[in-house]
Nucleic acid binder design. Structure first.
Lengths: 245, 245
DNA sequence: ATTTCTATTTAGCCAGGCCAAAATCATATT
DNA sequence: AATATGATTTTGGCCTGGCTAAATAGAAAT
């Protein structure tokens, strides 16, 4: 419960601010604790100086907590902003796939722009039209309008041993080439699989999906997040699954 | 056929530029010929000084032809930009009504923002999904992707004499109150009507639609554009009509 | 033809966001 | 303890797209 002796956030945050906040949110997840200026700069493709200036501003707006030379953390207010944008992003991704039939490897790019300009009202209508979905086409959970997310525990496909089976649950939306590759092989989040074989020295895995056996290695097997069989019991059916059912 | 010895337009025009171009296009339609700086400033809600500066820039970009103290005219390149944005605006309006069920008095406001951020690809998908529509929910014609529009001849309902009948074809999208009023009475573009009576001194008209008789006066009868019976023969069915059929 | 009014342009200013270069801080190494 | 290295912040510029105020050009009226 942060006291607001600083400036309070009333009007809509700018696109730039939303992008910073999203990036901070994403980085906080991995390296727990504070997010460094350089990490942010790298993530956003900006220079450290620019980021430093923006951090000062975000701090003044009460969006981040900043301790000089030791990085930033989102405040509650900042986290609300992040979750709102992420919700819009993921709703848009699903909407573009479901309603307009845009290939899933291109929705991220479009959503990246539109998320900043979609009103709350339209977001609500889209969510309604899609039946209050819980996951986007890539398996990422969609935060609720109230700002709660359920990030499930997942492991990289890469880490599984031969004999293991489970469910492919999510994959990064920002790798069009990977997504095209998966789509060509009809591999989507929600798919069950069994690891058949695994070559030594971090080599590719042989993985059986419904009928086909695929060889998946390198970045792909690292990017594909899975739930092993045991833990997979209580998973929801993803919207992507529903749609293709 | 304008020779391009000036700067050529390659990357996407900014939102500001698109708004200027749209405004110029709209004003050219009425007062034929050149559009004055002040008219533009009034339309855009900006100061003449700001507009003058932007005109200089648009001229350098080859978007407008400017003769000092005598206003601007769109070049071919400028008109292409205008029609592209207007197409996106009107496609969005129809899409928001048809697909998301947003009330027609609120679509203009949303489209005003989104038109600047909708990619050509998404616009094409929306057009396809809607069946290559020719008119938006307010009866405004949607320019084709190739940049042609068919602005039909219309008269204000206000000008019709008792006994006249015709089709209500379009109304401004930017008057939410009017639109709500019409919607409450189930009066939409495409509706046939007959003028029953008309009070003297620019008083309200009694107009019979399908079953009901409505009294329409003032700004409303001026804003409602119609095709009198004779000329109405070759009109298309509007998408709005189709949807409600 | 001169005055007067209005439209237009110029000039100077501001905020948001970015970059490049310089200065400062933190820390690890010797 | 001294110094080298890397991260962070500051400073100064730039660009867009607004603003105001003052100067100037054109149009209209006497």
């Amino acid at each position: 419960m942060s006291f607001a002796h600083h400036a309070e956030q009333t009007d809509e945050p700018s696109s730039a601010i939303e992008n910073y906040v999203k990036a901070i949110y994403g980085l906080e997840a991995r390296r727990d604790g504070a997010v460094s200026t350089t990490a942010l700069a790298t993530r956003l493709g900006l220079r450290a100086g620019s980021v430093s200036a923006m951090i000062k501003k975000l701090n003044a707006l009460g969006i981040v907590e900043h301790t000089r030379y030791h990085g930033v953390q989102l405040t509650d207010s900042g986290e609300r902003i992040a979750l709102k944008v992420i919700r819009k992003h993921r709703l848009l991704e699903l909407f573009l796939v479901e309603t307009l039939g845009l290939p899933w490897d291109r929705v991220d790019h479009e959503a990246e722009v539109l998320e900043h300009h979609l009103s709350d009202e339209l977001a609500a209508l889209i969510a309604e039209k899609l039946g209050q979905p819980t996951h986007d086409p890539h398996g990422d959970p969609i935060p609720t309008a109230e700002g709660t997310v359920s990030e499930g525990e997942t492991v990289a496909l890469e880490t599984l041993e031969p004999g293991a089976s489970g469910t492919f649950v999510r994959v990064s939306d920002s790798e069009p080439a990977m997504l095209r590759y998966l789509a060509e092989r009809r591999i989507y989040p929600g798919a069950h699989f069994e690891v058949v074989d695994r070559q030594p020295f971090a080599g590719p895995l042989s993985v059986r999906f419904d009928n086909s056996i695929q060889s998946l290695g390198g970045g792909l097997a690292r990017a594909m997040r899975c739930e092993p069989q045991d833990a997979a019991a209580d998973r929801h059916v993803t919207p992507a699954e529903e749609a293709r059912a």
